[in-house]
Design a protein around this nucleic acid. Structure first.
Lengths: 142, 142
DNA sequence: AACTTACTTGAGACTCAATCTCAATTAAGT
DNA sequence: ACTTAATTGAGATTGAGTCTCAAGTAAGTT
């Protein structure tokens, strides 16, 4: 996988060593499209027999987020979820308040309006958080 | 102020007693248009000589938020800010990542698109978080 | 290959916002 | 005034995340 090259280059660029733990954490986040929290990643690695610690998980995720390999998601319940950026396309999230299901969406119109709002107030837009909370079809039935 | 009547009715409706602490906390949040955190509200009351505790502040804010008298704002730095809803109009927030300034904005187009996105995925929209992060005009100069 | 040096790791201590506990207090109905 | 159940508050607890520092290790040097 040539993606591992990119990972190595990022650590090189940051003046950081390329270690087994860092690679494993990156692989774990890339292994699914789920939105997982740090504790989950930590325990999955532990269960899989990979030696690691919370400190290393958090430290590595910090580097990955800073370098845009992973996205941190704050859905307001006090802990971040992380998603890989393998698919590259930007999107926001629609969260079911009943079952926690997370659906990704993209609305170009909204994206443009955001730029407009920032311009109107003299801001240079850096990033945005846009999350819709509602009840999904299945949960509405229950 | 007839707003206090509404406050009393809400506590009545919830089967809660109307106490000096609860009224004072509500007044404190209504006393400015700032976006303040719980600790700030707690200390301001303390400084003003009003006996209270963190527990009471948090418990009261919970009731106020639930009853739509106060809005909780999660700007991603680990602690909620609270704003009063005296002006009634819905808005979202544009936050300066340098100086922390918070500007309120409303974009009808975006509001409509949000409803559309929810519909498209079979969701019933309950609420949303929409925050733009950027650098304000003053901070760009520095 | 052995040596050196500085970066990394991990167990557990610590932080900080927020919640919980429970004895003392108090609102509000009788 | 009496009764009773809700409320308060000091401090303990929780939980996500960060920090500490001795032990481990990557990678360059001899």
């Amino acid at each position: 996988m040539e993606k591992i090259q990119e990972l190595q280059e990022i650590f090189l660029k940051e003046g950081l060593r390329y270690t087994k733990q860092r690679e494993t954490i990156w692989q774990e986040i890339n292994s699914s499209t789920e939105h997982r929290d740090a504790e989950d990643i930590y325990f999955t690695l532990k269960t899989r027999g990979v030696a690691t610690s919370r400190a290393t998980v958090y430290r590595t995720i910090e580097v990955l987020v800073r370098n845009n390999l992973v996205r941190a998601l704050n859905i307001g319940d006090g802990r971040y979820r992380y998603e890989n950026k393998l698919d590259q396309t930007h999107h926001d999230h629609l969260v079911c308040t009943e079952c926690g299901k997370i659906i990704e969406f993209l609305n170009e119109n909204v994206e443009q309006q955001q730029e407009q709002v920032a311009r109107d107030h003299g801001f240079t837009l850096v990033r945005h958080i846009h999350q819709l909370f509602g009840v999904c079809e299945e949960c509405q039935k229950n």
